[in-house]
Design a protein around this nucleic acid. Sequence first.
DNA 1: CTAAAATCAGGCCATGCGGTCTAAAAACGG
DNA 2: CCGTTTTTAGACCGCATGGCCTGATTTTAG
Lengths: 198, 198
Amino acid sequence: MSFIQAARRRQIIGAAIETVTAVGYGQSSLARIAEQAEISKSVISYHFANKDELLEQVVAQVMDDWAAFMRPFLEAESTATGRLSAYIRSRLAYMRDNQTRLVAVAEIIVNHRGPDGRPVFAERDAAPVAELVELLRSGQQAGEFRGFDPVVLAMTITQGIDGALTYWADHPGTDLTAYGEELVTLFGLATQQPRSIS
Amino acid sequence: MSFIQAARRRQIIGAAIETVTAVGYGQSSLARIAEQAEISKSVISYHFANKDELLEQVVAQVMDDWAAFMRPFLEAESTATGRLSAYIRSRLAYMRDNQTRLVAVAEIIVNHRGPDGRPVFAERDAAPVAELVELLRSGQQAGEFRGFDPVVLAMTITQGIDGALTYWADHPGTDLTAYGEELVTLFGLATQQPRSIS
DNA sequence: CTAAAATCAGGCCATGCGGTCTAAAAACGG
DNA sequence: CCGTTTTTAGACCGCATGGCCTGATTTTAG
């Protein structure tokens, strides 16, 4: 893949992200994206097979980048409790520097459907939840966590973190770091082994 | 409003809900909704001013019904702790009997935009969160809850409950009652005043 | 320098959209 | 029973969409 190809693809992907964040998935036509990028519509058609492939690339790029960003934070922790806190903190840290990207991806994941009407990115969206389930299970086996249902916990944590993005998008003054610390203590209390029963 | 008018409106609203749940907001054209209802497209235009009014009615009907369903459960509780549990349980109880309705409304709220590109139902969606904030604040003033940020808590609880709907839609075998109890203990642990410090 | 390949702009097309129009059918009142 | 009003079906309109095509322009290769 040539240099100019890669550059154009990056530019178009960026324009798609800006457009989706600004006007929503439904209004993000190829014409609008091209206008945002200040190029002709056919340039998109030349560099991407179709709109689906463009959206696929947007999602893949952001998700991969996000996972790569988080990995070192998780690997630095030895206990499950520490990894859970690091998970929450690093997801919010990434949010802080990639708001538009993540808003766009969230919009695409929820809305993009195949010809059968079913969401296309459902599996990709479920992956981080599955990862969290593993984290929680290991913490239970290590005796750090109480005996909750790890699926419910993982789902709720994921949703809680996504809620921070939604809230931040609606209230730009929000201190995301403080929000994250609230979540860390919240889910810390919710997961840890209760004190002695007596 | 005549009897037949009311019946037709109910039928069309029902068909809109079915359609949105089945194929998503984006693919829910008036033609599809009419097909689902086995009527002609113009019948919709006759009974509703336009698509926006139809969606408005769908959302309003479900949200009002939901709030009315929950009210007695909340009023039966005297403590903030009890009201929080009742809040979670009653929201999940309503979900159990109204899955398609709620999936459709969630989809519409997130996706429906005005001509300016901004979401239309943002305020209506924020109302339950504001209600929860009040509940949590009163619990803090009563000394039942610890000193968390009530906005973060309210947001996380709301998101956590919505997560149950999402998970249930993807995993039809889910026991919603058990899911709800997990949430009750989870947020119970997260909110209650810590034991004596020593 | 030139010919081939890659890249781009603008126009074009079939499709599906929301909404309207006309006329037929159904319901209703006297 | 008939005339009026309400309700419905189906055709139709203007518009935006995703995708494609043609031809011009730029880059690359020999």
